[in-house]
Amino acid sequence: MAQAGLELVDEIGFEQVTIAELARRFAVKPASLYSHLQGHDDLKTRIALLALEEIDEQVSDAVAGRAGADALRGLADAYRDYAAAHPGRFAAAQHPLDLETAIASAGARQSQRIRAILRAYPLAEAEQVHAIRMIGSTIRGFVALELSGSFSHSSPGAEVSWDRIIDALDALLHNWPIH
C-alpha cells in the first residue's frame, strides 16, 4: 500500500493521497485497505518513510568518497535533484514523524551523514546540531521556493543562486562563530 501511495504522490501531491484515493486506484473498497493500514496518518507515515529511504540512497551515492565542500555540494545537489524529479515524494519526506519513528528512519541516517561531512570543518561537536539544522533549513527552503516557482520571475537563474548558496554554506562552516 505504501509503495503504491509513494508512486501516487508525484502524480496528485502528498496532501491529496488518501486511503479513499488509493482504494479508488485499486478498484477496491476503502474498508479493505484498513486491514493493511491503521488509518490516514499511518499511510502518510509509511509514504514518508519510503521517501526518506529513497533520498538517503541518493544522498549516500552522491557523497560517497567525497569530503568538505565537494561532499556538501553532493549532498545539496542530491536533495535538489530528488525534489525536482519527485516533488510529491519530497513533500512526503517532510511529514512529521513521532520521535521513535524518526529515530529509526532514514532521516536519522541523513543527519549522521551530514555530521560526517562536518568532520572536514573546524566545528566543535556541540555546534554540529546547529550546523545540521542550518544546512537542512537552507537546502529545504531553497528547494521549496524553487518548486513553487518563486525563482522563475527574475534573473539570474536559480542555478546561479544555488551555487552561491552552497559556496556560502561552505565558507560559513569554515568560519563558524565560536560561542
Rank of each mutant, 00 (worst) to 15 (best):
P87M: 03
T138C: 15
E146S: 14
L99M: 14
A124R: 08
A104V: 03
R89H: 04
A106S: 13
S155V: 15
G141P: 08
H130Q: 06
I114M: 13
L118W: 01
P122S: 13
R133L: 05
M134C: 06
W162D: 09
G88F: 08
P156V: 09
A83G: 02
I114F: 01
A116I: 00
E159F: 09
S161C: 06
G141Q: 02
A104G: 08
G88I: 04
G157E: 01
Q110K: 03
A93W: 04
R119M: 05
P87C: 04
F151H: 06
M134I: 08
H86D: 05
R115V: 04
L99F: 15
A84D: 15
E146M: 07
A93R: 03
S105V: 00
V143W: 05
E159N: 13
Q128V: 11
L123T: 00
I139N: 08
G107L: 01
R119E: 11
Q112K: 15
A91E: 13
G136M: 12
I117G: 02
A131I: 14
S137K: 12
I117S: 00
A108M: 07
R109F: 00
H95E: 15
F90G: 02
S152P: 08
S137E: 12
E146V: 07
E146L: 10
E146I: 03
A126E: 10
E146G: 07
I139F: 04
D98H: 05
I103Y: 10
A120Q: 04
A108I: 03
I117P: 00
S137I: 13
S148V: 03
P156I: 09
T138W: 14
H86E: 03
S154H: 15
A116L: 02
V143K: 08
Q94G: 07
H130P: 04
A120E: 08
H95S: 15
A106F: 07
S161Y: 08
M134P: 01
G136Q: 10
A102W: 09
E127S: 12
A92S: 07
A106V: 05
S161R: 04
H130C: 02
S150G: 13
R113G: 03
R115C: 01
A126W: 11
M134S: 11
G157L: 06
Q94L: 14
G88R: 00
R133Q: 06
F142M: 12
V129A: 14
T101M: 02
I132Y: 04
F142V: 13
G141W: 07
R109G: 00
L97G: 06
E100P: 11
Y121R: 05
S111K: 15
A116C: 00
F142H: 08
Q110A: 11
G88D: 04
P87L: 00
A91Q: 07
T101A: 00
Q94A: 14
P122E: 13
A126F: 15
E125W: 01
A84L: 12
Q128C: 09
R119L: 10
S155K: 10
G141F: 06
A84G: 08
A131W: 14
H153S: 09
H86L: 05
G88P: 03
A124Y: 13
S111H: 00
R115N: 05
F90S: 01
R115G: 05
D98V: 10
M134F: 07
L118P: 01
S155Q: 13
G88Y: 09
L97N: 11
F142A: 10
A92G: 07
F142S: 12
W162G: 02
G88M: 10
G136L: 14
I132T: 04
E159G: 01
W162R: 14
